[in-house]
């Protein structure tokens, strides 16, 4: 029997075999290049057409004012948010079920790699590719900086928010990929969850406010109800772009705007989804291999 001592060099500590395999294989398929191209084409198209439209509406092609530039940044940030939400399910919902369909999963599961290593490596490799894509859109953002109106801190926070959202959607994608046999179903379920995060939470929030206003008979809504909006990625991101929005939403009913809310909406969002993403990853790890009964005899 071979002694399974893992080599001690730094590379083997940072990059396990599964991650190494994922990196290599991803970069060897033409699909990777086409995905990157399509993404950059889409965001470039949005950016250039919005600059053109702003130009037209301002009527003065020679000057830009910071508020217009900020509008452009908001617009681009939401486009990027939409594109990430569209891309993340497609990139993650097939990582396990795809191996199952290609009949390579069983071979991988009989190796010494732990379920945790396999799941986390798969998530990390998908994340790395998404990060590569988002970073490659930075030149588009640099156009906004050229015109001013946005702080670098805000930009960093937005990118941090993107990263977080990728982890959240990626965790759900991997969970469905693990527990559902077929990639197609896993992809549909992940898109379903993503759609719910946006449209579902917005609708629930809106209906809840309407119902509470009906019940209480006043135009003021309960304070806790507005926190439903912190489940919504678009609202959460808007609270980064416009920090006042949290106060406006949270105190929309009470009329009191004196104190700052305890948490910004995006902070609430991160707390909630950190728990959910961790749960999804934990379930994926648990269900990757069959549940072995301890009372085997």
């Amino acid at each position: 029997m071979r002694n399974d001592t893992v080599s001690k060099d730094w590379r083997s500590k940072l990059i396990n075999p599964v991650l190494d395999k994922e990196f290599r294989l991803r970069m060897r398929t033409p699909r990777t290049m086409w995905t990157l191209l399509a993404y950059l084409f889409a965001i470039g198209l949005f950016a250039l057409s919005s600059i053109y439209l702003l130009n037209m509406s301002s009527g003065n092609a020679a000057s830009f004012n910071p508020s217009e530039s900020r509008m452009l940044f908001y617009f681009l940030s939401f486009v990027q948010l939409g594109l990430i939400s569209f891309m993340a399910p497609g990139l993650t919902a097939g990582v396990i079920s795809g191996e199952r369909e290609r009949q390579t999963l069983n071979l991988l599961l009989t190796t010494q790699q732990s379920s945790t290593t396999i799941i986390l490596s798969k998530l990390l490799s998908s994340l790395s590719f998404m990060i590569l894509i988002v970073i490659s859109t930075l030149p588009v953002y640099s156009m906004v900086f050229l015109f001013g109106g946005i702080s670098p801190a805000q930009l960093l926070l937005i990118f941090f928010f993107y990263l977080f959202l990728m982890i959240v959607i990626g965790a759900f994608g991997i969970l469905f990929s693990t527990i559902v046999k077929r990639t197609m179903i896993a992809v549909i379920l992940t898109y379903g969850v993503t759609l719910f995060l946006y449209a579902g939470t917005a609708l629930i929030g809106y209906v809840a406010i309407m119902v509470s206003m009906q019940v209480s008979g006043s135009s003021a809504s309960n304070e806790w109800i507005v926190h439903i909006f912190s489940w919504n990625p678009a609202v959460a991101m808007y609270s980064i772009l416009d920090p006042n929005i949290t106060r406006e939403i949270v105190y929309s009913g009470s009329g009191s705007t004196a104190s700052e809310p305890f948490l910004q909406l995006w902070q609430e969002f991160m707390l909630i989804y950190l728990v959910l993403a961790a749960l999804a990853i934990w379930l994926s790890i648990r269900y990757l291999r069959p549940r072995m009964k301890q009372s085997g005899k």
């Binding site: 399974d4 083997s12 075999p17 599964v18 009949q103």
Partner: peptide
């Protein structure tokens, strides 16, 4: 029935599984 990672070379394929079993390079 089993699949293979088509984008690997034969030698890389074996290296991957070797590494997955914890065999030093």
């Amino acid at each position: 029935f089993f699949g293979v990672y088509d984008q690997f070379k034969a030698v890389e394929y074996l290296h991957f599984y070797g590494a997955s079993y914890g065999i030093p390079k």
